[in-house]
């Protein structure tokens, strides 16, 4: 139960990271000149979709070791969600732009929470796999 909840939360974060920069907290509108925030939105779409797929896998797979690996993948994706608008691609330079005041902080928050939730899922999976007894689990 706990695992399913955590998996669903990561799916939601993945969705937000994927479509947020185009919808809820959009980057600047691109004219003929495409600014950095435009590319940030594109990359976030890729990473966000990857997080959604990984989250769905987490939901359906039950073997603890695989879940642990998937959670690790989610952590890395979360790191990317944060780094894309801050270090890797970036956003517009002027702090008066929407991508700076809204989009980037929103992605930082989503990415950070995603990392936290995925870390929790990782710890839970590792605990479950080591606490499992060999043989029948008695009621």
């Amino acid at each position: 139960m706990k695992n399913k909840v955590l998996a669903i939360i990561t799916i939601i974060f993945g969705l937000l990271a994927a479509i947020g920069p185009k919808t809820i907290f959009p980057v600047c509108k691109a004219g003929e000149m495409k600014m950095r925030c435009f590319y940030t939105a594109r990359w976030e779409l890729v990473v966000g979709v990857a997080a959604v797929i990984t989250g769905i896998l987490l939901l359906i797979i039950s073997k603890e070791i695989i879940r642990a690996v998937l959670s690790g993948v989610q952590i890395i994706l979360g790191v990317f969600i944060v780094l894309i608008p801050t270090a890797i691609v970036g956003v517009c330079g002027s702090p008066m732009m929407h991508c700076v005041t809204v989009t980037r902080p929103a992605l930082i928050v989503i990415g950070t929470l995603h990392i936290l939730v995925s870390s929790t899922a990782l710890i839970v999976s590792l605990r479950e796999s080591s606490g499992k007894r060999i043989g029948l689990k008695v009621a």
């Binding site: 702090p95 700076v100 005041t101 809204v102 980037r104 902080p105 930082i108 928050v109 929470l113």
Partner: peptide, 13 residues
């Protein structure tokens, strides 16, 4: 911290 620091520009605005 996750709210006030990343969004400080927005808050100020």
């Amino acid at each position: 911290a996750l709210v006030v620091f990343p969004f400080s520009e927005l808050i100020s605005e």
